[in-house]
Nucleic acid binder design. Structure first.
Lengths: 98, 98
DNA sequence: TCTATAACTTTGAAAAACAAAGTGCTTTTA
DNA sequence: TAAAAGCACTTTGTTTTTCAAAGTTATAGA
């Protein structure tokens, strides 16, 4: 019997950050509003979770214009991809022992 | 693109409660002190997470004597097993889309 | 010009996490 | 037999996290 949670990443304890990462892992670029709708969050709540992930350097922010309107999209960094993969591996390992 | 976190159980957001459940899923009965050691927690911290899981009726408390010493062990309830399984299924589904 | 939308930031309240110390009971040890 | 130690908590209090709601800035469209 050994510690099953030692390899889990604290940042991904949050269901919401897990959701953001999993959306960004599958879709190259996702906009603020898409994330907001997908995860059914308020602006502020989403913004703060995105901020946490940004601080950790797990994602990039891309500010662009679609036509003349601003559109902010988010994408995963290499570090983010790696950290997320490690977390999922740890989860999978945990699941597999069950 | 659909909400990837809708089926996750809020109670299992916590790494520690996830760890407790995964230990109890594999080992029929685990004592307070084993859990404490495995997960590297203080008494109070473990007790409060166990309490949360007990409130949710995800685990049973068994107070017994080993020789003449008290030993409290914990085991998973049917509801706990089911809820945990659903959570893991949701996680697996999330992982598989990636 | 007025309204709406995007993407935040700020504020503040509520909940959760956690460590540390205290408790009551029993058992072992000096 | 008195003191020390272990078990399984509970209590206390601080720190951290979560979240909603409101405010902000800038642009776009009617």
């Amino acid at each position: 019997m050994k510690n099953p949670i030692a390899d889990l990443n604290k940042i991904f304890d949050s269901r919401i950050r897990l959701g953001v990462m999993s959306l960004l892992a599958v879709n190259e670029n996702v906009s603020f509003n898409e994330l907001k709708e997908m995860l059914a969050l308020t602006d502020g709540n989403l913004a703060s979770h995105l901020n946490t992930l940004e601080q950790a350097q797990y994602l990039n922010v891309n500010k662009a214009f679609v036509g003349r309107k601003t559109s902010t999209t988010y994408s995963i960094t290499a570090l983010g991809k790696q950290s997320f993969k490690m977390h999922l591996d740890a989860l999978e390992k945990m699941i597999r022992t069950i």
